[in-house]
């Protein structure tokens, strides 16, 4: 304890001495008096600096041959943008799940409704997937009932698909291409919707 204290005090004294010396020198300079011939701390440092500068100048003059400068010219342009510190796990995870695709999936949908026919949930602006599945199957059956004409030689008049139940309406569709469906009409496929649209 005592030793360190004495050491500190000694350092302090030394610093004080140097300070006083500097002030004296500056005073003499201001007055135009000749300086005291005591060696100076600053002057010594200056000498070291000048030595370094001279060395650097020598290196610059003879730099083309040295190996270090060649490595710098190759890798200097590449190896200068690197992360300085490690990203924490929390930050990495938040950055990972910030993309658009994750947001779309994880966002709460408030536009989901139940189908009035079957109760399947679907988004409001879309059609019911289950009901459309039925429609698709029925359409495929209807196309198959028509046969090859549908694909290669389409009839040149409106086509009417007649189920077993609607044989009495046959007279209505005179001059139209009638396709027989050999099964009863599905319950969900209402008959009156077959009538022509009005734009």
């Amino acid at each position: 304890m005592a030793v360190t204290l004495i050491g500190r005090l000694g350092n302090l004294l030394h610093k004080l001495e140097t300070l006083v010396h500097r002030i004296r020198v500056q005073d003499s300079l201001n007055r135009g008096l000749p300086t005291l011939g005591v060696p100076n701390f600053d002057l010594g440092l200056d000498g070291v600096n000048s030595d370094l500068e001279s060395r650097l100048k020598q290196q610059k003059n003879s730099e083309s041959g040295s190996s270090r400068s060649v490595i710098d010219s190759i890798f200097g342009s590449i190896l200068w943008g690197v992360p300085k510190s490690r990203r924490t796990l929390e930050k990495r995870l938040t950055r990972k799940f910030q993309g658009k695709e994750f947001k779309e999936v994880t966002a709460i949908k408030k536009n989901i409704v139940a189908c009035l026919e079957c109760g399947t949930y679907h988004e409001m602006h879309t059609i019911c997937p289950k009901c459309y599945g039925k429609v698709r199957e029925e359409t495929a059956a209807m196309k198959a009932a028509m046969g090859e004409d549908f694909q290669y030689n389409h009839p040149r008049s409106e086509v009417v698909y007649l189920y077993e139940d609607d044989q009495e309406d046959r007279a209505k569709y005179k001059g139209k291409y009638i396709v027989e469906m050999k099964k009863p009409r599905p319950l969900w496929f209402a008959k009156n919707l077959l009538t022509k649209g009005h734009g």
Partner: peptide
């Protein structure tokens, strides 16, 4: 509009149809 498949590629599919066609209606009743 057709509903998007989940999980899936997220592609929006749709149905285009001519009016007055003989098929069963897409929007049920």
């Amino acid at each position: 509009f057709l509903p998007k498949k989940v999980p899936g590629s997220g592609v929006q599919m749709g149905i285009l149809e001519l009016k007055g066609n003989p098929w069963p209606p897409v929007v049920p009743r």
